[in-house]
Computed example of a mutant assay.
Amino acid sequence: MLIAVTAVAVGLAGLALAGTWTRTGRYRREDETGPLPRHTWVLAATPLIVAALAVAAADQPWGVAAAAMLLAAVSPTLVAVDADVHRLPNVLTLPLAPTTWALLTMAAATTDRWPDLRRAGLALLVLGGLFVLASLLTGSRGLGMGDAKLVLTLAPLLAWFGWSPVLLGLYGSFLLGGLAALALVATRRADRSTHLAFGPYLLVGSLVTLLLVS
């Protein structure tokens, strides 16, 4: 019952965020101009993904289920924003990481699953650190800092379920991104110098993995 109530609350919040941002383009900076894409799919996808994660994580501690649903609620909006301006806004990615960690800590405290939390913390430090370092080293030519900040949420949440989900989620993300890049190059819609938004693939790979392992 608590997970169902949480799903409704989180889903409504995600819908409000999606409706406001995609309708007004308030995520754009002054120099980010051009026609505003029609992201009507975001409004349909948000409650569906939240509901799917709520069902998949129904047997998990409330904190874990809430963290998964929270990620699901903001993911469609993050995908739409990154696809439009190739940027993941700090206003979403920065609060998401500590909130997810707090929910996982709550789950460990209420179920005595401290080994799972320690593994999540190790993933946060190692993978989060590697992505931040990769972003600093490659700059605009590689992973963006927004992607690295997103991993600070994805890595511990996936690691709660084990190391295999972490590998599956990240491998799936890179595989999806690589296939999309090849398709764009093959259709001459991009070339080797084109910068592609990687956030959507990180989110899709991670959400699919959570659906499989929850």
Rank of each mutant, 00 (worst) to 15 (best):
L2W: 09
L2A: 15
I3T: 15
I3Q: 13
A4T: 10
V5N: 03
T6N: 10
T6Y: 02
V8N: 02
V8H: 01
L12G: 11
G14T: 10
G14R: 03
A16G: 14
L17I: 14
T20S: 14
W21K: 10
T22F: 01
R23C: 07
T24R: 13
G25T: 09
R29L: 08
R29S: 10
R29G: 13
E30A: 15
G34L: 10
G34S: 12
P37R: 04
P37W: 00
R38Y: 07
H39C: 15
H39R: 12
T40Y: 09
T40Q: 11
T40K: 04
L48W: 12
V50E: 08
V50N: 09
A51Q: 03
A52S: 13
L53I: 12
A54Q: 01
V55C: 06
A56H: 11
A56N: 08
A57V: 04
A57R: 07
D59H: 13
Q60M: 14
W62G: 07
W62H: 13
W62Y: 11
G63D: 12
G63K: 07
A65P: 00
A67D: 01
M69N: 03
M69H: 01
M69W: 06
L70E: 05
L71E: 08
A73P: 12
V74F: 03
V74E: 10
V74C: 12
T77K: 05
L78N: 01
V81E: 07
V81W: 02
A83L: 15
D84F: 08
V85L: 11
H86E: 13
P89G: 10
P89Y: 02
P89Q: 09
N90H: 14
V91W: 02
T93N: 06
L96E: 03
T99N: 08
L103I: 06
L103P: 09
L104C: 08
A107K: 06
A109P: 01
T111H: 15
D112G: 11
R113C: 10
P115T: 00
L117N: 07
A120Q: 07
A123H: 07
L124R: 05
G129P: 01
A134Y: 04
T138C: 05
T138V: 09
G139Q: 04
S140W: 12
L143T: 08
L143F: 13
M145I: 15
D147K: 08
D147S: 12
D147N: 10
A148R: 12
A148M: 12
L150K: 04
V151Y: 04
L152T: 04
A155L: 00
L157Q: 06
G162L: 13
G162T: 08
W163P: 01
S164Q: 15
L167N: 03
L168N: 00
Y171M: 14
F174K: 11
L175N: 06
L175Y: 07
L176C: 01
G177M: 05
A180P: 06
A181Q: 01
A183Y: 03
A186H: 04
T187E: 04
A190L: 07
D191I: 02
H195E: 14
L196S: 01
L196H: 05
A197D: 06
F198W: 02
F198H: 07
P200V: 09
P200H: 09
Y201N: 01
L203S: 08
L203E: 00
V204Y: 06
G205K: 09
S206W: 12
S206M: 11
S206N: 11
L207P: 10
V208G: 15
S214E: 02
